[in-house]
Simulated scan of single mutants.
Amino acid sequence: MLNRTLVPQSAARLIQDMIQSGELAAGEKIPSQREFSTKLGISRASLREALLTLETLGLIKTEAGRGTFVAERGSAANSGMAPWRYSDSYSVFDVFQTRIMLEGNIAALAAGRLTGNQLQAMEAATKQMEDCWAKQDLLANVEADLEFHAVIASACSNAMMRALYQVVREQLTETQRQPIPITEPARMKASIAEHRRIISALRDNDPVRARQEMENHVLNTARCAGLNP
């Protein structure tokens, strides 16, 4: 049983493990939130957040009037992406467009400011992305992606941009999860290569190249999601 203070991301990891081990089989209906939250020893709010994360990653699927089910293997690419959870506030197009502008500028303003330890952390996060994709540990793959981008944001010389990044981080995070169910292995390989080019530009203290590489990376992610902002 989980500790009741466990964060939703840890609950999502436990459920992902249950799916990968077969404890929750493909096509199986997820227990009711009341039952499942009691079984896991977490609040229903934490469970709901965990399930939303897993649905965005294509591991589970909610069917109107029927409930929530473990996704069938190989079905995610056919069923497309999960509904955009922030549609009441911003479209996914708007968020990607903002990411290109914001993260491109952040990368340019981080050039020359990253320490050796930070660059190593970005390299480690990129390697973790690669390794976790190979194991289909989708949660850890995205966590490593988030860490990569967060390190760059933390080195940005503009305090307001750093603050703005934190304000919109939930929406930015969702655009990093959203395309995962339809991401082909070749696209993930390309994304990892893009990360390494960003690291190279930052290591060389080249703000122009850092901006270009980051904008290209986010644009390619948007195109993977079927958008062209």
Results as ranks from 00 to 15, higher is better:
T173A: 02
V7P: 06
L24R: 13
Q118F: 09
L146S: 08
A64N: 15
A159E: 12
V208N: 05
L2D: 08
E174V: 04
I182C: 12
A71Q: 11
K127T: 07
H195I: 06
E35H: 11
A134P: 05
I19K: 11
A45C: 00
L119G: 01
S200D: 06
L14C: 12
V218K: 05
L6G: 09
F93H: 15
N141G: 01
G116Q: 15
R187I: 13
T183R: 15
Y165D: 02
K39A: 14
R196Y: 01
R211C: 08
K29P: 11
C156L: 08
A45S: 11
H149F: 00
I19V: 14
Q9W: 11
N228R: 13
Q136G: 08
E55M: 12
W133Q: 06
A76V: 10
H149I: 02
V168K: 02
L51C: 10
R177P: 03
A76L: 14
A11E: 09
S37D: 05
E194I: 02
E170C: 03
N105Y: 05
M18F: 14
G104Q: 04
W84V: 00
E130W: 08
E143D: 15
P185A: 07
Q120T: 14
L40S: 06
A108P: 03
T175F: 01
L47Y: 11
L14I: 15
I198F: 04
R203D: 09
K61C: 13
E213R: 12
H149A: 02
M214C: 00
A111L: 01
N205T: 07
L172K: 03
T221H: 09
S21Q: 13
R223W: 05
N105S: 09
F69H: 07
A222P: 02
M188R: 12
L40K: 07
Q166P: 03
D88R: 02
R99Y: 01
I152Y: 10
L114M: 05
R209D: 04
Q136E: 14
E28S: 14
A71E: 13
D131P: 00
P207T: 04
I192T: 03
I30F: 10
T183S: 14
D17C: 08
A193K: 05
E215K: 07
V151W: 06
T62F: 13
L138N: 11
I15E: 11
T183A: 13
L138A: 08
L139N: 13
R187C: 09
S37E: 07
I180K: 09
T38R: 13
I30Q: 11
A134F: 02
P207E: 02
E35N: 10
I60S: 04
S200M: 05
L2H: 09
R169T: 03
Q136I: 05
